[in-house]
Computed example of a mutant assay.
Amino acid sequence: MSEENIFFEEQFKIRASEIGPNQKATLPAICNLLQEIAGNHARQLSFDITDLRKEQLTWVLHQLHVKIDRFPEWRETVTIKTWPSGGDGIRAYRDFLILDEKKHVIGSSLSYWLILDLTSRRPHRIPKKILDRVPDDTEHVLPITKEKFPELHDIHATRQFNVRKTDLDLNNHVNNVRYIEWALSNLAEEENISEINIKFIAESLFNDSVIAKSGVAETVEDDAKIHELVRKRDEKLLCRAITK
């Protein structure tokens, strides 16, 4: 891959629908922008979701780690820079930097992607034609997480959500950002979350009922919380996240 194609950037103006009461962009809104630019760059590289669907394959987000130093304000323009950053045959990595209007870095993210077989609904090895176009020697903006996420033991709050059609994405399952919204739903209004590391484990479909659980675990830092989403009918774990 040539140097000019490794990096891709877009500008986004923070809209009223993307802010909270403090007039700053919300964490889920930032995650939506990351998802948008990732798809746009993959399309430019000719391996986006529409290209893969021709082979009965699709991209799914396996893990997302986002760390925000400063949330952009309403009507502020941010530049997001992204690039593919290697993989291990099953997972493909993609990094992001978020810059303000003065080109200062205000956030960073590392994402982990899987290719899913649409017929079997199981992970598929990343095709060689994609791996050959992705550099494997670029530095990551955040460290790769190799250890297992701690389990939630001390539950402080729960909330239930019923999956609506508006929660579904192109893969006809619940969009990953909706998982993030639900995971954060148990936090108190005054809690300011600037970092999330979330692992997506299973699909949730239309008419499912999902239980969001939040609390702590003994193995995490004092200011961290653990979140789990569980499908109600069979208690299947859908995702697990750590927030700070």
Rank of each mutant, 00 (worst) to 15 (best):
175 N>D: 10
228 E>V: 01
97 L>P: 00
178 R>Q: 12
108 S>Q: 10
2 S>A: 11
96 F>H: 03
204 S>K: 12
60 V>G: 03
92 A>K: 10
25 A>E: 05
147 E>A: 10
47 F>L: 01
3 E>W: 02
15 R>F: 09
55 E>R: 05
33 L>Y: 02
1 M>P: 08
62 H>M: 11
123 P>M: 12
177 V>Y: 09
156 H>S: 12
16 A>D: 03
200 F>K: 08
140 H>V: 03
115 I>P: 13
164 R>V: 04
191 E>T: 09
155 I>C: 09
138 T>Q: 15
36 E>A: 09
177 V>A: 06
34 L>H: 01
243 T>K: 07
17 S>A: 12
23 Q>F: 08
44 Q>M: 09
81 K>A: 05
146 K>F: 06
188 A>C: 08
6 I>E: 01
151 E>W: 06
83 W>R: 15
16 A>P: 01
46 S>H: 07
18 E>V: 08
66 V>K: 03
2 S>P: 13
227 H>T: 06
52 L>K: 07
52 L>E: 00
209 S>Q: 13
181 E>W: 03
87 G>K: 00
70 R>Q: 14
194 S>V: 11
240 R>F: 12
100 D>N: 15
102 K>R: 11
32 N>A: 07
194 S>A: 11
69 D>N: 14
233 R>Q: 15
119 T>Y: 03
187 L>Q: 15
130 I>N: 09
72 P>E: 14
63 Q>A: 05
212 A>E: 11
6 I>R: 11
208 D>F: 03
233 R>S: 15
40 N>I: 03
185 S>L: 10
106 I>G: 07
152 L>A: 09
223 D>A: 06
10 E>W: 00
74 W>L: 15
47 F>G: 04
16 A>M: 06
122 R>S: 14
52 L>D: 01
158 T>C: 05
5 N>W: 05
237 L>E: 04
57 L>G: 03
24 K>V: 12
194 S>R: 04
43 R>I: 04
54 K>W: 00
48 D>G: 15
131 L>E: 13
104 H>E: 15
120 S>H: 00
13 K>L: 05
129 K>W: 06
150 P>G: 12
51 D>Q: 12
200 F>A: 05
92 A>R: 13
148 K>G: 02
228 E>P: 00
8 F>T: 01
238 L>I: 14
55 E>C: 02
168 L>D: 04
114 L>R: 03
126 I>M: 07
200 F>P: 04
80 I>L: 10
102 K>V: 02
165 K>H: 10
201 I>A: 05
185 S>E: 09
70 R>W: 06
173 H>Y: 12
202 A>S: 10
38 A>E: 02
12 F>Y: 15
26 T>K: 11
29 A>N: 06
120 S>Q: 08
21 P>E: 13
47 F>N: 03
147 E>Y: 02
107 G>N: 07
77 T>W: 01
71 F>D: 13
142 L>S: 01
191 E>A: 12
